[in-house]
Design a protein around this nucleic acid. Structure first.
Lengths: 115, 115
DNA sequence: TATTATGCATAAGAATTTTATGTATGTTTG
DNA sequence: CAAACATACATAAAATTCTTATGCATAATA
């Protein structure tokens, strides 16, 4: 990723959510999807993406299938069963994180908190 | 911070927002405030906090005033003018980030996006 | 009097990301 | 038709951020 520091730490969650939603995707496709979803605001760099995919695969959360399309190589990734379970956890963490950050940014949204 | 990876990169934004809101705070106070706001979910560790404060000070975004309270030392930090401007930027970035992550997590919220 | 809380700090290591580079094929445009 | 851009993978050095561990010191509490 190349962006606001805030995206640090969210890459694997993003990848796993996209795979949950789309079944299977290849690396370049992920970068393009994220770019379009965020209207160009978030650009995942290859230097971050590929090591992240390899790590998730190594952890048994992703499976890979290599395919040749035309004359070009594609590596399609999809969630394993473990990966699907872990995705649920990570999305729950993400929602908690977002809630906490919203409370920090705009404490008045939550009027019963005292601080 | 000691938590879900997601918080990586958000520490300085959190610090600056709290200082914007509270005028001035000292390190330990910041850790306690964050803990109470997040109901114990986010614990900023000293190993992350103090280097972050020193860095922000070095960048001219924070000023420090040392005070002795009882027999103990406190270092009160507050935003400089540059720091106040930068805080506005970072909070805008945070809002964009949250929006983007929400769109990623729950694309159906935003029905006019096509992907 | 031992533990916990308050209050600061730094250093080694881990983890993640940026930046830079490399290889190769396919498409578009001036 | 050559150059530029897009597609598609990869890795390695450096930077950044955070965790973990440690250290010092005072105050309060059990």
């Amino acid at each position: 990723m190349k962006n606001s520091q805030l995206y640090k730490g969210s890459l694997t969650t993003i990848i796993m959510k996209l795979l949950e939603e789309n079944g299977r995707m290849y690396g370049y496709e992920i970068t393009q999807k994220v770019k379009s979803i965020t209207k160009g605001e978030l650009n995942i760099t290859e230097g971050a993406l590929y090591p992240a995919l390899h790590k998730l695969e190594g952890e048994g959360l992703l499976d890979v299938e290599v395919e040749k399309v035309g004359n070009r190589l594609r590596k399609y990734y999809k969630l394993t069963e473990d990966g699907q379970k872990e995705t649920v956890n990570r999305l729950a963490e993400l929602e908690e994180f977002i809630k906490n950050m919203q409370t920090l940014v705009n404490p008045k949204i939550n009027p019963d908190l005292q601080f």
